[in-house]
Computed example of a mutant assay.
Amino acid sequence: MHRLIDERGLADTKFTEDDARLALRDMIRARRFDERALALQRRGWMSGYPPYRGQEASQIGAAHAMREDDVLLPTYRSNALQLARGVPARDMFMFRRGFAEYQSDHGIPIFPQAVPIASQIPHAAGVGMASNYTGDDYAALVCFGDGATSEGDFHVGLNFAGVFDAPVVFFCENNGWAISLPREKQTASESIAIKADAYGIEGVQVDGNDPLAVREVVEDALEKARGGNPVLIESLTYRQGPHTTADDPSRYRDGQQDMPEWRTRDPLERFEEFCRTNGVADDELIDSMYEDANEELSEAVELAEAEDDLGPEELFDHVYAELTPELAAQRSENLEFVEKYGPFSLDR
Results as ranks from 00 to 15, higher is better:
29 R>W: 09
45 W>S: 03
199 Y>A: 01
100 A>G: 10
56 E>R: 05
216 E>P: 00
311 G>Y: 09
122 P>Y: 01
189 S>C: 11
99 F>Y: 15
232 L>T: 02
295 E>C: 06
309 D>H: 11
289 M>W: 12
106 H>F: 14
201 I>H: 02
189 S>F: 14
35 E>I: 12
74 P>G: 09
181 L>W: 11
165 D>G: 06
135 G>L: 07
76 Y>A: 07
94 M>T: 04
244 T>G: 02
11 A>I: 09
247 D>F: 07
14 K>D: 14
156 V>C: 04
201 I>T: 02
221 A>W: 04
269 E>Y: 05
304 A>Y: 00
209 N>L: 10
139 A>M: 06
8 R>G: 03
278 N>G: 07
7 E>Y: 06
104 S>R: 09
137 D>S: 14
94 M>K: 02
269 E>T: 10
117 I>F: 04
213 A>H: 04
232 L>H: 02
125 A>D: 05
56 E>N: 02
54 G>H: 03
143 C>I: 13
307 E>V: 12
127 V>A: 12
273 E>D: 13
159 N>R: 08
31 R>M: 08
314 E>G: 05
51 P>R: 02
347 D>G: 02
50 P>R: 07
32 R>T: 08
339 E>Y: 09
295 E>A: 15
196 A>K: 01
257 Q>I: 13
281 A>W: 01
282 D>P: 06
163 V>F: 12
160 F>H: 08
87 V>F: 06
332 S>W: 06
338 V>C: 07
146 D>W: 00
327 L>M: 10
223 E>I: 08
49 Y>T: 04
253 R>E: 03
164 F>H: 15
93 F>W: 08
180 S>Y: 11
302 E>M: 10
132 N>Q: 15
106 H>Y: 12
334 N>R: 15
234 E>T: 08
105 D>A: 14
310 L>G: 04
37 A>L: 09
194 I>D: 11
43 R>D: 12
313 E>I: 11
262 W>E: 14
157 G>D: 01
118 A>S: 12
86 G>P: 09
158 L>Y: 07
63 A>F: 05
326 E>P: 00
36 R>A: 07
226 R>C: 07
205 Q>T: 14
96 R>P: 00
108 I>A: 04
25 R>E: 12
